[in-house]
Simulated assay, not measured.
Amino acid sequence: MNPDHMPVCKVAAMHVAPVFLDKNATTQKALALIEEAARNGAQLIAFPESFIPAFPVWAGLWAPIHNHDLFARMVAHSLETPGPEIALIAAAARRYQVFISIGISEKNPVSSGGIWNSNLLISDEGRLLSHHRKLMPTFYEKLVWAPGDGAGLQVAATRLGRIGMLICGENTNPLARYALLAQGEQIHIATWPSVWPTKTPGENGNYDNLAANRIRLAAHAFEGKLFGISCAGFMDKAMRDFLVQRDPAVAAILDHTPQAASMFVDPTGAQIGDCLQKEEGIAYCTMDLQQCVEPKQLHDVVGYYNRFDIFDVRVDRSRKKPITWLEDNPPVWPDLGAGDATSGSNS
């Protein structure tokens, strides 16, 4: 990146619904949306949290003893990384020469029922730049996803700038955010579900996705002097009908829980570009990274405006494994000759 000519890029936030709990149909929808955004000039395209195959909102609606079939379906439609669906998305990134951030529910390769809430950043050459698993599922999400690790706390240096991403509640984790800021993050992608109910209608204080997400995105952008992308899912009629047909009592909860918005902020925290909340679509914004420079004069938390002699932050970015084998090579067992029925001794 030439410091005298900072990048200017057009970004797209997909304020869209999945084909609920259908990984194949949702992947095809993602491919069509990528093509549309690329033809409209987008160079960086962001999809919502757990876009493929869906966000498990049912975990906040019913007790877990009533959700076994939904969990099994969620696992069946979660993705392997690498896997065929990711390969299709990577091919689209390469074909249209765009960077893609996409939220998925990811299968654990060594557990038939283990899944993570993950986010992938794919380059314009179709390469995986960052593979982040949500550090800690939030509230009722713990009934669905396992905790991730720090391996994905990475900022990717690209021709568009330094891109980082966090999932939903991680954007309230100051240490996770600082880990990205300390890598020179310039464009931050924050992903969210469409709705996140916490209380029944009539109770005060139901979680306000719209306000909370705007506060967190603006705070991170202001603190880091960077651009922010807030990409939230959308609850379409098919998703609502699926849940209400299962239990009509949840209609009031879904209808009175604030829907999240997809929006953008500049390095001062001010909202810029498009904003979508109550309609499905693609939000666009142009970002000039030169605007990240001047605010650093005033306040630079990863530069001069800190006390590294007082604060010592350490981050473990190793990928956690369920087991470590200590032998140099796996054992090779002898052939028992089971195929030869006449072998052996009768003595």
Rank of each mutant, 00 (worst) to 15 (best):
N171Y: 09
T172H: 15
P174F: 05
P174T: 09
L175Q: 13
A176H: 03
Y178D: 04
Y178A: 08
L180N: 01
L181N: 09
Q183S: 11
G184N: 08
G184F: 03
E185F: 10
I187A: 06
T191S: 13
P193I: 04
P193K: 01
V195L: 10
P197E: 06
P197Q: 06
T198A: 07
K199S: 06
K199Q: 11
T200R: 13
P201A: 10
E203M: 12
E203I: 07
N204Y: 14
N204V: 11
N206S: 08
Y207K: 03
Y207P: 02
Y207N: 02
D208V: 00
A211H: 11
N213Y: 09
R214L: 05
R214I: 00
I215V: 15
I215D: 14
I215K: 15
L217F: 02
A218T: 12
A221Q: 03
G224S: 12
L226E: 04
F227N: 01
I229C: 04
C231Q: 04
A232H: 03
G233F: 00
F234T: 06
F234H: 08
F234A: 03
M235L: 13
D236F: 12
K237S: 12
A238R: 14
M239L: 13
D241F: 14
L243V: 01
V244F: 01
Q245T: 06
Q245R: 15
A249D: 10
A249M: 10
V250S: 01
A251H: 13
A252F: 12
I253A: 02
L254I: 04
D255C: 11
D255M: 10
P258S: 07
A260C: 07
A261S: 10
S262W: 05
